[in-house]
């Protein structure tokens, strides 16, 4: 499963966007969008300065 965003934590800083190796995360007006070509590498989860992303469960 691709990562999920905790909208209450996310500061929309773009750290995950610039880190994503396949450029599949986008900053939207109020949230982040992670597209389906996510490879589930987890780099965005790790780079997030404030723990706003987590790997989704099934």
């Amino acid at each position: 499963m691709k990562p999920e965003v905790n909208g209450e934590r996310c500061m929309r800083c773009g750290a995950c966007v610039g880190t994503c190796p396949v450029n599949t995360i986008f900053l939207k007006e109020f949230t982040l969008e992670i597209n389906d070509d996510c490879t589930e590498c987890g780099m965005c989860v790790k780079v997030c300065p404030i723990d706003a992303l987590y790997m989704g469960g099934d």
Binding site: A15, P21, V22, N23, M43
Partner: peptide, 21 residues
């Protein structure tokens, strides 16, 4: 900026190495 879309659209650079972020 850091999350440059223009650079990615243009296919200008590779993704960053974890040690360089």
């Amino acid at each position: 900026g850091f999350e440059s879309q223009v650079g990615r659209w243009a296919g200008i650079y590779d993704s960053l190495k974890p040690k360089d972020i």
